[in-house]
Design a protein around this nucleic acid. Sequence first.
DNA 1: ATCGATGCAAAGGGTTTGCAGGAGC
DNA 2: GCTCCTGCAAACCCTTTGCATCGAT
Lengths: 138, 138
Amino acid sequence: MKTDTEKKLRYSHQREMIYQYLMGTQEHPSAEMVYDALRSEIKGLSLGTVYRNLRLLEDLGKVRRVASLNGTERYDAMCGDHVHFICQSCGTVHDVPEAELEQVRGTISLPEGYQLGQVNLTLSGLCPECLKKQASAN
Amino acid sequence: MKTDTEKKLRYSHQREMIYQYLMGTQEHPSAEMVYDALRSEIKGLSLGTVYRNLRLLEDLGKVRRVASLNGTERYDAMCGDHVHFICQSCGTVHDVPEAELEQVRGTISLPEGYQLGQVNLTLSGLCPECLKKQASAN
DNA sequence: ATCGATGCAAAGGGTTTGCAGGAGC
DNA sequence: GCTCCTGCAAACCCTTTGCATCGAT
């Protein structure tokens, strides 16, 4: 009586590497960034495979889509709710550990009848580097 | 010493209608939804024009991109920060007036050197209708 | 008359998918 | 050996853009 994920999945080196890569990075990469990072380690890796596995890992709840920048999705292996900062200029996505999302979650009162899933708090603005560049451009 | 928006803009019926439509709706429409809603009123309206004007209105700060669902951007004419609820199942975007975003903004402490712009709090989950459908499917 | 705005259609960029061969179990 | 997974490339979808024309000032 649940979303039947009847298909049993097999081990795949590609999937494992993709997941490991996401676990080990802080950069909240897009599919293409993952692809670029792994193509040297996995000969013949294809972008399609990266997309397929990201989607699969997402369905499994092991990976999360954390932001969308200029039509490009960004992924993260940490699945707990947390806060992200997106730089409008360079597109970097940083975690913001200081912000207390738990606290935020506490203050939310949804109207009757809604079921709350993810809480996504995204800040945008300019990162230190881009601020610097902007300053020196004047 | 500012982003020179030197180009002077002229009145356009299409732009006016698009803006009015966004002001008058609660549905946080995508470009195509705006197009579909207005094509009967504006003969010969083109989707490209809708996109161009949404972008322009966004640059003017009169309209805001509030969410991206399955790679499709959603727009809103209300430009203050507020909270949105996206139904994972049907894609509806609702405002959540109860949530106190101001309060949230107060609790945020960014690391040194960042400049905070927009604060975007998006909740996702299931809306009442989809919950109902899901229940009756069992 | 000038130059911004439009419609149209083609191009662009990210993501998905069909297919035949390859790999896990 | 049965299926799932992969690589490749074509297909898809949303969005942007080039171009000739229309329209506002």
